[in-house]
Amino acid sequence: MKTSRRQLVLGSLAAALPLSALRSAHASTFPERPITFICPWPAGGTADQSMRALCQVASTVLGQAIAVENRAGASGMIGAKALASARPDGYTIGQIPISVTRFSQIGTLQADPRKDYSYLARTSGQTFGVAVPVDSPYKTLAEFVAFAKANPGKLTYAHAGLGGATHVGMEEFASVAGIQLTNVPYKGGAEALQGVLGKQVDALADSSSWAPHVEAGKLRLLATWGEQRTPRFKDTPTLKESGYNVVVDAPNGIGAPKGLDPAIAAKLRDAFRQAVASAEFKAVADRIDAPVLYLDGPDYEKYVNQVYQRETVLIDKLKLRELLRG
């Protein structure tokens, strides 16, 4: 009886407290248990490696473990949807691929990146590039473009899937260059790489999966797609400096479901700010050629909205909806 009466009294007191006070009390003790981090890519890939490095440092800052849970599939959209649908209590966070701005408009993602996420940090980008077999007749990007102009549709390129960054980036380049290429979609970058190494296609559009093969003398890198040259391949020009105003770096970001308590969001933002600045993360980023592109949560949210608007134009320009319908 005493226990029941005590519970009743405590319940009445809790009910009497304003919601803001309860939220404040919850935020002050956060986190009280391990956090789940949804990575929308397979284990072992470059995105997975970078996210695990960040989570390891952030867990030290927060004083709780962060368990990485891989939910791969649909070009990252399975994990992105799972994150948007989770409880906004701070105990489920995850990577938000910037391609949510494209796939939400095409219909592949049943979530709106402008409304359904709380943004915590933009972390790092990716180094994309165009590579050809080392015995290819195209020694430079200019030679590649010249042949494509003279032979519309004859040149083929492998990429990691329709609508993804490598497909859209290559088509944007082709549009700016005034050439027509034939895209050959594969089930991921690893298979696309094998398609080029096996001489099934003329060129590869991918993130840095080509890097060790360029260094081994099996592939020739014609151009990278970043704002600046990548230090590891400093002799290779960017698309932009080659005269094509195209920049693709597909930054990774970290977020949570919409409705996250601002005080909890502040703790998570601070933890991942420290993680991005850490020596541990820089070592991983350098190893996978991932330029650090940090933005704090509010600025990252503004960036996502800007990309969403650009994607709206690009989707119509490249007729992506028609391409994906087959």
Rank of each mutant, 00 (worst) to 15 (best):
K2H: 13
S4G: 13
Q7H: 13
L10S: 09
A16L: 05
S20T: 11
E32R: 14
I35L: 00
F37Q: 01
I38M: 09
D48V: 11
Q49A: 11
S50C: 08
M51N: 04
A53C: 02
A53G: 07
G73C: 01
I78N: 11
A80P: 03
A82S: 08
L83W: 07
Y91M: 04
T92E: 01
I96K: 07
I96A: 05
F103R: 11
T108H: 10
L109W: 10
R114S: 15
G125R: 06
V130A: 04
D135I: 07
T140I: 05
E143A: 08
E143T: 04
A150K: 13
N151K: 02
T156Q: 03
Y157E: 03
G161S: 06
G163D: 01
A174V: 01
K187S: 15
G188T: 13
L193R: 02
L222P: 05
G226E: 04
P231F: 14
G255C: 05
A256C: 00
P257S: 05
K258P: 07
I264R: 00
A271V: 00
V276N: 09
A283W: 03
R287D: 10
D289F: 15
L295W: 12
E301Y: 15
Q306C: 09
T312Q: 04
I315E: 02
L318V: 10
L318D: 05
G326S: 03
